[in-house]
Simulated assay, not measured.
Amino acid sequence: MALRPPVEPMLAQARETVPGPGVLSGPLAFEAKFDGFRALLFIPASPGGPVLLQSRRGSLIQGRFPDLVAAAGQLPPGLVLDGELVVWSGDRLSFEALQRRAASGERTAAQLAAAAPAHYIAFDVLQTDGRELLTEPYEHRRAVLEGLFAEHGLMPPWTLCPMTTDPAVAQEWLASWTEVQGVEGLVIKGLGQIYRPGARGWFKVRRRQTTEALIGGVTGTLARPQLLVLGRIDADGRLRAVGRTTPLKPDAARQVAQHLTPAGPGHPWTGVRFTAAWGSRDALDLILVEPDHVAEISADTALDRGVWRHPLRFVRLRMDVTAADVPLFGEGAAPAAG
């Protein structure tokens, strides 16, 4: 039976390091991980049928990406692809432009498509010529996907996700490719794995870098802080929020608590509402503190307009540096001076 939306995509669980052989079914394959919107693409089996684009959560979003629908004429009928929607801005990926496109209405979709065309990075094929491939091993599905691009001479907006089975090459990608904003790390799959919708059967490894930011607020209490909300000074001298940490471990919470000072009048974040996560509407119950202590943090490469989208990891307090040494807002993971 032909696949129809909604189909739950197979997912990946986070790991700190690239795993060794034997952890997944068969030898390992390594794909570049792009920071975009996960989407499944359904090409109708018969002429005149609708091209459907499904988000990770099951919503149909093809109306927001008319450029991809128009380009789908390059693809054979009865095809279902799994991949990532991205928008390039020069030599980097623009998550901001992608967000605008994903939130567009019918009136603005065509204009945004012309100004910021989308690309589809395909990394799996779930159906070809109407035949379901979910129970086929990844190695076979990848061969089918590569054959599809070769046979049809597919060009942008269709892109084949880079893949290697060489761990040394994968480590080089992790070290060098993640210098490009929007390339986050690696997804690791077993060549013998079948496609299990909704299962976290793959691994993902994001490149992380150590940097610094100012502690501007905490959740919990001053005696027992739970999360840190961090900021950096912009070019106009204002403290701008850059992200929040994961929950502090008990030892780290005690260390930070010893140095927190309640904010006095005129804290730059007075009256500002902070949400619990990127894209969330839930507000944090934040206690503002004087932003005079520097936290060393571990951050990944998912940075959007100076703000990290994923939670940061607290490493330690930097009592040896001052606010003047912290990188300015927008400088990403640049290390502090000194």
Rank of each mutant, 00 (worst) to 15 (best):
L148E: 04
A150I: 02
E146S: 12
I121K: 02
Q62T: 06
L75W: 01
V18A: 06
P137K: 09
T108I: 09
P44S: 01
R196F: 13
I121D: 04
P9D: 05
A45I: 04
L24I: 08
A323N: 03
V69G: 02
D282Y: 06
T219D: 07
T221I: 01
F329K: 06
D67W: 04
H267S: 00
F123M: 12
T164R: 03
M319N: 12
L81C: 05
E184D: 07
I194D: 14
A175V: 03
E106H: 10
A295L: 02
V272T: 15
S298L: 14
I188G: 03
A72G: 03
V180P: 09
W88T: 05
R131G: 08
P44M: 03
L112Y: 05
L191K: 13
E16G: 08
A263N: 04
H310G: 10
P225I: 06
L148A: 02
G243D: 14
E296M: 07
L191Q: 15
M10Q: 13
K249E: 15
Q193H: 14
L3G: 11
R206A: 11
T164A: 04
P117E: 11
L11S: 02
L79S: 05
R208T: 13
L28F: 02
L98F: 00
S89V: 02
G90R: 03
V18N: 11
R207S: 07
F329P: 06
P156E: 10
T219W: 09
L79K: 01
V315W: 06
L81M: 01
M155N: 13
W158D: 04
D35N: 10
K33A: 09
P265E: 13
G130H: 11
D166L: 01
P291D: 06
L133F: 11
A71H: 01
G26H: 07
A102L: 11
A170P: 09
V205R: 07
G73V: 13
I287V: 14
P268M: 09
R38T: 11
T246Q: 13
A103K: 14
Q209W: 08
V69R: 00
